[in-house]
Design a protein around this nucleic acid. Structure first.
Length: 267
DNA sequence: AACCCGTGGAC
DNA sequence: TGTCCAAGGGT
């Protein structure tokens, strides 16, 4: 059994029955990919259902008020995803006649869609042979082949894209990409991967070399700053004072209590 | 290329 | 309690 065959057999036996896998609607596949960017499946799934329920088609989403879209997104984080989602819906509705573009090149030009998401949509919704290299794919292949190129980086993205396209062969691109992602998420996990039960354990570089915990090589994350927001709750019997964040900053366009920001907690 | 953008679960 | 970081993309 070759790599693709082994992977697809594993996927057939182990894949989760996720709602966005039960549709061929490019709109819903796109929506699921945007929601799942840097977001766990368990956290994103309620939002996927909320959006598909509130906006059954991409034209419905395009016709919504942006405030309503952002409000429905509230709690998910990375709100630029919601703004780009709405903007892209309007472009598809107005410039593509409500029909989602069907090629990687066209899809990749839309806002909020980068190399990973374009590859995912093109392959899953339209069967185009494109790679969808996310963190799961990078981890699995870095371990399996012993690749030490630090990620995320442009160099790593190109290197892994070429490998995926080669491994894919003539398999269905969308199924193969989802299998690769699901394998990374469920089997070749970041911590304590299930190597004893892994169908690739007889040919995995990292397992053979005892380097499972050293791969993949990751670029160190930028240090995070801590910000302190001190809110004033101003209200009377009927009214609550809120202000909208219009600045190009965190929580742009969301509403909040009046506040002062300080460098230390509790001034 | 480096930094920014959120939230919540795992440890 | 603190740190890490997830189906990344924009600038």
């Amino acid at each position: 059994m070759d790599f693709a065959g082994t992977l697809l057999n594993w996927y057939n036996d182990n894949k989760r029955p996720l709602a966005f896998r039960a549709t061929t609607d490019p709109y819903k596949i796109w929506l699921s990919e945007i929601i799942l960017q840097q977001t766990r499946v368990e956290q994103g799934m309620p939002y996927y259902h909320s959006f598909t329920n509130a906006y059954p088609t991409i034209v419905d989403l395009a016709n919504a008020h942006e405030d309503a879209v952002i409000r429905l997104w509230q709690g998910l984080g990375y709100y630029s995803r919601a703004r780009n989602l709405h903007q892209t819906a309007k472009i598809v509705a107005n410039q593509y006649g409500g029909k989602f573009p069907s090629t990687y090149t066209e899809i990749a030009q839309l806002k909020g869609i980068g190399p990973y998401t374009a590859g995912a949509i093109a392959s899953i919704a339209f069967g185009e042979k494109a790679a969808a290299v996310d963190g799961n794919v990078y981890r699995f292949l870095a371990r399996y082949f012993g690749i030490e190129t630090p990620a995320p980086s442009e160099k790593a993205r190109k290197e892994f894209t070429a490998i995926v396209l080669d491994l894919m062969g003539n398999a269905h691109p969308g199924t193969f990409n989802q299998a690769l992602i699901e394998f990374g998420a469920l089997q070749c996990k970041p911590q304590s991967p299930a190597c004893l039960l892994c169908p690739f354990n007889s040919s995995c570089y990292a397992l053979a070399k005892g380097r499972v915990n050293e791969l993949p090589v990751k670029n160190k994350m930028a240090a995070r700053r801590t910000r302190y927001f001190n809110y004033f709750i101003i209200k009377n019997d009927k009214q609550l004072l809120l202000q909208q964040r219009t600045a190009k900053d965190i929580w742009q366009q969301l509403y909040e209590f009046p506040l002062v920001e300080t460098k230390e907690p509790h001034p």
